[in-house]
Computed example of a mutant assay.
Amino acid sequence: MQIKILQLTEGAKVAKGTTVIIDVLRAFTTACYAINQGIETIIPVGDINMAYQLKKQHPNYLLVGERHERKPEGFDFGNSPTHINAAKISAKTMIHTTSSGTQGISNATQASEILTGSFVNAGAIVQYIQKTRPSEVSLVCMGFACQYPTNEDTFCAEYIKNELEGKPNDFRAMVKRIKETDGARFFDPANQSWSPESDFHLCMDVNRFDFVLKVDKIGNLNYLRQLKI
Rank of each mutant, 00 (worst) to 15 (best):
Q2I: 13
L164F: 11
N121E: 10
D170M: 04
I84H: 06
M1W: 07
I84P: 02
Q103P: 13
E10Y: 00
V64R: 04
P189M: 07
T18W: 00
S100T: 11
H68M: 09
E69M: 06
N121T: 05
D76I: 05
C203E: 03
G78V: 01
R225Y: 11
M142E: 11
Q53R: 14
V175L: 01
F155V: 05
T102Y: 06
N107E: 14
S138E: 00
T181F: 00
R26F: 03
K167A: 11
D23V: 00
P59Q: 10
V215D: 05
A31R: 09
F171H: 08
G219R: 09
I160S: 06
V206H: 06
L139D: 03
K55I: 08
A190C: 04
S80F: 02
D76S: 08
A124R: 12
Y52D: 06
K214S: 05
L25V: 05
I3F: 01
D182G: 04
K55G: 04
K88Q: 13
N60M: 09
I218T: 15
N222D: 15
T82F: 07
G46V: 11
G38A: 12
L62N: 10
T93M: 03
F119P: 15
I84Q: 00
G183C: 05
V206L: 12
T109P: 09
K131L: 00
D205K: 11
H68Y: 08
D76K: 06
Q103E: 13
Q7H: 11
S80H: 07
I218M: 15
Q57V: 02
N60A: 13
E10R: 09
Y148I: 12
G143H: 04
Q147M: 11
N107G: 03
A173P: 12
K214L: 04
E113W: 06
E165H: 07
I84N: 09
V212E: 03
I160A: 00
N121M: 13
Y61Q: 03
N220E: 14
F200H: 10
I39V: 14
R70F: 02
D210R: 06
N169I: 05
Y61S: 01
G46S: 15
G17E: 05
I105K: 12
